[in-house]
Amino acid sequence: MKVAYVTWDGWDDEREVMLAAWLGADIEGAPVRWDDPHVDWSSFDAAVVRSTWDYVHRRDEFTAWARRAGAATRLLNPATVLTWNTDKTYLRDLGVPIVPTHWSSIDLPVWDEYVVKPAISAGARDTIRTGDRQQAEAFAVELESQGRTIMVQPYLETVEHEGELSLIYFGGQFSHAVRRNAMLAHDMRDGVAGNGKFTLRDPDEDQFELAERVLGQVAEELLYARVDVVRMPDGEPVLIELELTEPYLYLKAEFDAPDMFAKALADLLG
């Protein structure tokens, strides 16, 4: 089988290990830029979206591409999932505990620190963290003036000492989890490179149960998923984000992860 590894021209340190694992599963992988106008997507048995990390300020173009590619070949994850998942307003639809979120610049709650970001973003682009309520409100107004939906959340101190936990799934099966150290500085408007420091970690039972509940809300068949959770000050695990579009998968943290991904892909393609 010939499968497109959908990527961009920038950094991606998981590409080679992924392609090697695919080859071991008799899948010929070819790195292809998502926005290359010369690609014939119908020439592939499938296209797997991976490091398309330049789509954020071109989301309409990206989702239109996903629909075209999905009509020409099997797109993983599907175009409907990518369209839904690239706008974080999906968090309102899942019916699971999430980080408290205010969706307007008006009447901000009183919190010690604020995180303000647009609903369509990645890598902490156009995001600030501040203890100044007026600054938070002003930045939220600025984003809204650009026609962007905004999210205002409290900065959780638990992130500093416990970190975020990312649970990674392939073909609906749990693969591994990593603890990610806090990486949010006070002004991230230009975004960040990389994913900070991380360590392999076993999820606690309540964190695992939350991740399973989150994935149970998605009807479509998924090749990959990353569920990011954090604890509230009272200890309750809550969802930060459900990454179904182009998540970094921490493949180097778990020896068997690349092969598990390749097997999930082979099983989906039959």
Rank of each mutant, 00 (worst) to 15 (best):
E246D: 06
Y5H: 06
D60M: 09
W41S: 10
V32G: 01
P237Y: 02
D228V: 02
G191Q: 04
R33P: 00
Q153V: 10
V17G: 13
D60L: 11
V17D: 12
Q173T: 14
R58D: 14
D112E: 14
T149A: 09
A46N: 04
E221T: 14
S105Q: 07
K2Y: 13
H186E: 14
W53K: 04
D234V: 03
G194F: 06
A225Q: 00
W34A: 01
V48E: 01
D13K: 08
L184T: 14
L251K: 01
M151E: 00
E221L: 10
R125I: 12
A20R: 15
I27M: 04
T52D: 03
D132L: 02
G196H: 04
A69C: 15
E246A: 05
A193Q: 15
V178C: 03
F44K: 03
E113L: 01
S145T: 15
P247C: 05
V218D: 05
Y250I: 05
Y114A: 01
D206E: 15
D267Y: 03
A124G: 12
S104W: 09
A47L: 08
Y248E: 07
R33H: 05
Y5C: 03
T63P: 02
L242I: 13
D132G: 11
E16K: 14
R50T: 00
S166D: 01
L75C: 04
D9E: 14
V81M: 06
I98F: 04
Y5R: 07
F44M: 08
I150A: 01
L215D: 05
E209H: 11
P97T: 06
D126W: 08
M183N: 15
D12L: 10
K197S: 15
L23D: 15
M18S: 13
G29A: 12
R15M: 15
D93Q: 15
L269Q: 07
D36L: 09
Q134A: 13
Q153N: 11
D93G: 13
S166H: 00
A46I: 05
V17I: 13
L143Q: 02
S104D: 09
Q134W: 03
F44S: 04
N77D: 03
G10F: 09
I27Y: 01
N77R: 07
Y90D: 07
